[in-house]
Structures are given as C-alpha cells and as structure tokens.
C-alpha cells in the first residue's frame, strides 16, 4: 500500500459511559478515496472530530502526513480541508464574504475564492447572502471552503446528506475527480453503502465504535458476496452451458429463466455473456444483486448485535 496519509493507533473516545470510538486503527493511503461507512451513531463523526483536533481522544494517537496531530496541529491542519456534519456558514454574509473570512486565516491568494466558487458552480450566487441559500448550495459552499486552502487531504463528513439526487450525483463526481486532478487524498463518511461503493477505492466500516472492516472496495465486494443475476429466454440450456464452463449457477425460485451466479470479475462475466449469446440464448438482463448494508453488518459483526 502507498504511504499512509492518516494513521490512527488505538484511537479511543469515551463519552460518558459509552465507548463512542473504540480502539480504532485507521490507515488511509496517499491518493485514496476512503469511504468511512457506518450506521448513524456508530462513531463516524466522533472519529472525524478527533482527526481534526476538535475533540481530544481519550486514548490513542492520530498521525496525519506522518506527524503527530497533538503536537503539530496547526501545520497539519494547514494541509487539510474539512466539512463536518452540516455545513458551517455565516448567514448574514455573502458566499464570497464567507470564503473571504476563511481566506484571511489561510492566507491564500484572493484568486482562490473565484476558483473554488467555480468548482462548486456558485459563481453566479457569490454576491447573495448565504441565509437565502438552499441546503444543497450551503453544502457546496462548505465544499468550496474545504477546498480553499488547496488541501492535500480532504475530510468530508456525510457530504451528500440532505442533497437531492442531482446534487448527490454532482457531489460524487466532484469527489471522484479530486484525487485524479489534484492528487488529493479524500476521507468521506457515509451511512449509505451504495454511495460509498460508487466513489471509494478503500472502505472502512465502523459499528458501535469499532472498526469491523478495512480494505479495498474490491475486497468488500468479495466479502459482501453480492451475486449476479442473469435473465435469459432458455433457463435450462443456459444453466447447462454455464455448468460446462465451470460455473455453478442457481435457479431463482420464482422463475426458472433467471439464474444466480456468484460474484465474478468484469472480464469473466463478459466472457460468460458472450458464450450465452453465441449459443443463441437471448440475454435479457444482467444485474448485480446486492445485499443491503444491514445484511453485511449482520455478517461482519457475527449477527445479533449489529445496528
């Protein structure tokens, strides 16, 4: 794995009697989009607040860019952009002035404001007071603020919360483009597996304060045991053909023309579809049958005590 940008060691936060975060060992490599996944109240935000020095860990350490956060907080934070939970804003100021208030502290050139405004497509709204903004626009302003200092690490807590579908899509594309264009590392938290799946390269799953899974997205797919469903016109012929090429397909109970295959790589699946089509079997649908996050949690936490 590439050099670690974030590395926590036994990071723990006790809130009252509850272990909000319990001995977390996060490791996030350079240039990754790390999807930090977990149900509400699992400790995602608490972890992120510790990563930003907003709260102190009860135990354990945080190292960012190889430096101890406690000791070098200011120099580390200079290279980090963040958006924690709902966006922060000064309602009586315009979008431009909001960014200017942060720019003063970061001491970056004024031209950065126009740059980040155009990245989140708020250039036209820049002169309006933020209190009149929709939640989506405030969220975009929050992203713009996070990007203002040209950070090497972007930490986004539930960035798509409260956005409409087009806003979610836009946010996802924006996040995906960051590491490619700017060499950034991104940590993005979410309670939606589908969302994380569409943008993350690495995934960490937290439940009840404990990290129960941390690996690449591919490994998660394997682990989650998602299956491929193929609908064809001749179920039996297709089943035999697949069996002949070494794939044990299952019949779907309700419909004999639907076959369920174990998770395959893209190349292998393409070969199978080709095989079916070449043998004059009509392929109606090829879909991935995903299991819900809840199912996966049940499995990962060994059942019973999840969510």
């Amino acid at each position: 794995m590439s050099e670690a940008v974030i590395e926590t060691n036994q990071l723990t936060k006790k809130l009252g009697n509850k272990m909000a975060v319990d001995r977390l060992d996060l490791r996030i490599g350079q240039g990754e989009i790390y999807g930090f996944l977990g149900p509400n109240g699992a400790g995602k935000t608490t972890t992120i607040r510790m990563l930003l020095g907003l709260i102190r860990p009860t135990r354990g350490t945080v190292r960012i860019f190889g430096r101890d956060l406690q000791k070098d907080r200011l120099s580390v934070l200079r290279r980090v952009g963040s958006l924690v939970e709902y966006p922060s804003y000064y309602g009586h100021l315009t979008a431009y002035e909001n960014l200017e208030a942060v720019r003063c502290i970061l001491d970056v050139p004024r031209s950065r404001i126009d740059e980040v405004l155009s990245v989140v497509r708020l250039t036209k709204e820049a002169k309006r007071p933020v209190k009149g903004f929709s939640l989506g626009m405030k969220q975009r302003l929050g992203i713009a603020t996070a990007l203002l200092g040209s950070p090497e690490l972007l930490i986004l807590d539930e960035p798509t919360n409260g956005l409409d579908p087009s806003g979610i899509l836009e946010m996802r594309e924006l996040i995906k483009s960051m590491p490619k264009q700017l060499g950034m590392t991104v940590l993005v938290s979410s309670h939606l597996l589908s969302e994380v799946e569409q943008m993350a390269t690495q995934v960490g799953i937290i439940a009840q304060g404990k990290l129960i899974f941390q690996d690449s997205i591919e490994a998660l797919r394997q682990h989650s045991g998602s299956r491929i469903r193929i609908s064809v016109d001749q179920g039996e012929a297709a089943w035999k053909m697949l069996l002949a090429s070494g794939i044990q397909a299952e019949w779907e109970l309700t419909d004999a023309n639907r076959l369920l295959l174990p998770h395959e790589s893209d190349e292998q699946l393409a070969r199978l579809v080709k095989l079916l089509v070449h043998n004059d079997i009509s392929v109606y649908r090829v879909e991935e049958e995903k299991r819900s996050l809840e199912d996966m949690f049940l499995e990962l936490t060994g059942g019973g005590d999840s969510l």
Binding site: G53, V84, V102
Partner: peptide, 18 residues
C-alpha cells in the same frame, strides 16, 4: 453568536488557528 448559529466553531477550529 455567529459561530453558535451557523456551526462556525467546528469550521474555524479545524483551520490552522490556535
């Protein structure tokens, strides 16, 4: 006031300012 109302504390204190 503005920090309390707009959630500005967490943004401000995650900036490089002590």
């Amino acid at each position: 006031r503005y920090e309390h109302v707009g959630g500005g504390w967490k943004q401000m204190l995650a900036l490089p300012v002590s």
